[in-house]
Nucleic acid binder design. Structure first.
Lengths: 223, 223
DNA sequence: AAAACAATATGAGATATCTCATATTTTGAG
DNA sequence: CTCAAAATATGAGATATCTCATATTGTTTT
């Protein structure tokens, strides 16, 4: 983890103003942190000392169960918060947060800003929107995971993560995210290939039938 | 649905003050609604016109999937909000909310109070805590549903809902909540009886081995 | 009280998903 | 460049869970 100083810090603060997120100045005690790919931003079970706001990069929220299974609960992208649960709740089991690409965040020390933040309507309104989105998203994922087999959830995931028609996520990560075994994921991917939805190209998969995948993903959406 | 008027309304407002939830008076336009058991407080897909705050009773959040499966996403209890998602988000798929007992709530009309509420730090702080709890709870349920078989989740549910050692939830409701088929639920309940954890008594089940159930439920908890 | 409906029950076969074993390939650290 | 660790692959048998069919009982509605 690297803490940006002086000029480098000033540059980031200037370029990525967060004035619209709060109504008081935070320049004085804010820090700018950079985490490398795979580095842990927060260790599971350890309360953080900062409220983070992600400027660039992407991170993953992990929780480890007693039976050894690991769940990738969700991804965190730019313009999202990390550590907001700990800011709000004195008692909370802290999940692990791992950078999945180089990630730069603003870090506001709790000890300095906590009470001010909790009084600031502008900040709270933003946070409230963020949390409502998070709760809604988790509820959707939850009910979908129970109501649909992997086939549908994987189709959705492929469409969401594919870049220019090429799907190339790591199987291991996807297993944790969709909550299925490695074996089963491979099995369904093979089926998709056999049905002609995908075509394997080395490590990647090329989407051949958007329509079919869309249909599989579509049945999960209401509205 | 019944709207309390005059004296009856005054009584409720007096007895269940919500002054600690906001910093401005709402007596003038607030309504007090009573819903009967099984009545729909909000219809799925239809935006509500009120922010509700539950005073007494219990309700259920339902969503219907295209494949016909119904998920009982969560229960709502006294001192919780209903309609907060719609207050915050202009675009949101509204879930169905059904009273599972007689339920009384305060109803704040959006058109009257929305902007005031969104400016009020006290209200927002409370809502933020509520939402963070909701998001955390859904995340936990989600990851547990993927990481553990019904056996564990059912043990947890039985312990949480049993009253004086007697479990008597409706199977149909539990299926929707735990996301399993009726058949499978019965199957696992039968196993619990065979193993001596429970003992069937007519429609109810008496808990015989708290220890065993606790163990099954316990492996899902971190912290 | 009869009819219609919701909830409980149980059997049996199908399918989704898991575990374990083992082999090959790729990647990162020294 | 080498070795160990991580990621990919594949087979085969086990288990969790589902679907469908059908019966019984309890609860509303007429």
């Amino acid at each position: 983890m690297e803490v940006y100083k002086a000029e480098k810090k000033r540059l980031y603060l200037e370029k990525h103003s967060i004035a619209h997120l709060l109504s008081f100045p935070i320049e004085e005690f804010i820090e700018v942190h950079e985490y490398k790919r795979d580095e842990w931003i927060i260790q599971e079970g350890m309360r953080p000392d900062f409220l983070f706001y992600v400027i660039e990069g992407k991170a993953k929220i992990y929780v480890t169960h007693q039976n050894g299974k690991v769940s990738l609960i969700n991804f965190i992208n730019a313009n999202e918060y990390i550590g907001e649960m700990e800011l709000l709740n004195d008692v909370y089991y802290t999940k692990g947060i791992q950078a999945s690409t180089k990630t730069v965040c603003f870090a506001l020390p709790f000890y300095r800003y906590r009470s001010q933040l909790l009084e600031d309507a502008k900040f709270l309104r933003e946070l409230t929107r963020f949390l409502s989105g998070k709760a809604t998203f988790m509820a959707a994922k939850y009910s979908q995971s129970l109501a649909f087999p992997l086939e549908n959830r994987l189709a959705d995931f492929i469409l969401q993560t594919a870049d220019e028609g090429i799907y190339k996520e790591k199987h291991v990560t996807v297993c944790d995210y969709l909550g299925v075994s490695y074996r089963h994921l491979l099995h369904v991917l093979t089926q998709f290939c056999e049905k002609g939805y995908l075509q394997k190209e080395g490590r990647n998969y090329q989407i051949k039938q958007f329509g079919s995948l869309n249909e599989l993903a579509g049945v999960m959406k209401n509205n």
